[in-house]
Write a protein that binds this DNA or RNA. Sequence first.
DNA 1: CGTATATATGCTCACTTTAAGTATAATTAT
DNA 2: ATAATTATACTTAAAGTGAGCATATATACG
Lengths: 342, 342
Amino acid sequence: MNTRNSDRGAAPARGPAGGVVIELSAAIVTVTDVSPKILLVRPPELSPRPGLPYGPFDPTGHRTLEEGLRTWVEEQTALHLGYVEQLYTFGDRFRDPQERAGGPRPVSVGYLALVRQTALKDAGESSWGDWYRYFPWEDWRDGVPTINDQLIVPHLTKWAEGAKSKPDRSRRRERVNLAFALEGGSWDNERVLDRYELLYEAGLVFEATLDARLEVTADLTTIHTHTHTGAALTKDHRRILATAMGRLRAKIKYRPVIFELMAPTFTLFQLQRAVEALSGGRLHKQNFRRLVAQEGLVEPTGHISAQTGGRPAELFRFRPEVVHERPSPGVRVPVKVSKRAE
Amino acid sequence: MNTRNSDRGAAPARGPAGGVVIELSAAIVTVTDVSPKILLVRPPELSPRPGLPYGPFDPTGHRTLEEGLRTWVEEQTALHLGYVEQLYTFGDRFRDPQERAGGPRPVSVGYLALVRQTALKDAGESSWGDWYRYFPWEDWRDGVPTINDQLIVPHLTKWAEGAKSKPDRSRRRERVNLAFALEGGSWDNERVLDRYELLYEAGLVFEATLDARLEVTADLTTIHTHTHTGAALTKDHRRILATAMGRLRAKIKYRPVIFELMAPTFTLFQLQRAVEALSGGRLHKQNFRRLVAQEGLVEPTGHISAQTGGRPAELFRFRPEVVHERPSPGVRVPVKVSKRAE
DNA sequence: CGTATATATGCTCACTTTAAGTATAATTAT
DNA sequence: ATAATTATACTTAAAGTGAGCATATATACG
């Protein structure tokens, strides 16, 4: 694999100083067994942090934005992208610190891409990382992450109370309650971006303190490195990843995209593990099988799996016809949070 | 109001020939009584068709894309935008015919904006148009539109059978069935874009035949003007509007955005009419009130409305607290299609 | 004044869906 | 053998949904 960060090679789309340059960035996701993975590339010279792969948009060569994305991804990696979906276009000033040095304004069109678990090794400049390494507070499969109660919620509460005006305080408090399921609220696993932005604003993620330092208005008393609130990525790539996670978590509920990540045949438990990995919660096993069966999402192959300790399971395959039968076929399961050790 | 199409005035973001220029286009939506409205501007010199308002993105002046949009909209119109949401970034080659004449590649970041029904008259170069004028096949409030059965479905079926290869035919047939609820399928009011793209590919909308003519590969035997399949808009603006409609129809089901379009107080029937207008279907009145009540979306004001023939109705207001109580508060109503005269 | 008509609102009821659990089957590890 | 592990069938209580009936309060019009 030869994924390269396009800091070298963006020339075709680079405008004049004061101009605009369009990047196409990709959150390329896969799932191996119980772990959701994101493709990351080695950091460019300036930054010690890894980042999402991205490439330039070539207005003379690329017929569409998506074609542009597919082209450079498949050129630079051995990956064939299956499902591809545009996420959001990011254009905040200084999302790339380079801009401060007089570079052009980089506007990034973010994409979500799904690839099946491959035998690809981490090679060259790219590697697969568990996405909860960057979002530890999002993994509720083993109960509420300790970091939430012990670090994040206390800090966010303090941050909320630290606002200057009273309405500001109340607004901050409400945002924190809503995003982190305080005061009787329930955890919404799709609000990944909301939560990241709160942490950013409160200075609890490394990117925030770095950006603040560059603005020379930093309050350096509360620097938190990646050891506390997940590993950092370059520029605003963690924000893009948050957008991708939220979108994917939402999408599996009403479109059969989960099967873009599965092998051609699979056991129901493997399917459940994949959904749980992406959703960050646990599912009720018996209800899960009833659901996928009665939604017509899968059909039995007749074969049974190689045993993995316990009664052998039947192998299933995706039923593509479901798309024509139901209005919005997906794994519409209530992702329940398991109470842990308490 | 002084909305201007930015064909005049896009200079700040215009790159060199072969470069990229970023436009910010807005689907500005409101609802008056029973009619969903979209803000349109007078066509630029070249086109006889109206279009969405759009303006340039100024990389030196605008801090964020959304700020850029708000800035030029509020400069050029008297409108204060309330809810604003990024939709999609459109970058297909030749989405603007000007590009063929050697202009820069225009990439358009589309936004959905909601404004309350205002007393604003159609004035100057902009006007409010009922969005079903451009999508007559989407309005099922009085049963399935005649155009669907009498014109669209027969033509699309013929188009599907006209594909060269057998798998192509089958793919086309499936897309048509799914999008237009054929063969026992149910109408999904969110698939606005899917349907528009089918009509475009089949050459049933005016834009398609125009674009084809410009490519000089047109089959001009099947030109359909706006009288048959809705009025046309400039460039790809009908596609952008389709995206906005689909997104809005989806969003009202799980976010209380409908209240961005209502007056501060309203009767439940007015609220129902607004939802029906956007959704393009009818709702069961009694269940609708039960739903908005038990979801906690509204609260009574104690006042009653000025009568409009019939028993006076109580006035309600939005309950903003609902956002903190439920995971995804919205008007999650089954938009049923009323069977008409059959 | 009385009747038709229109809208508003409360309530019932059958049916479906959902969350959660019990029970049992078929395998591996020790 | 026995414990542990995974698979799968079935039950049940609670909640939600779709449809309709009944009644209340207004206007329009003879």
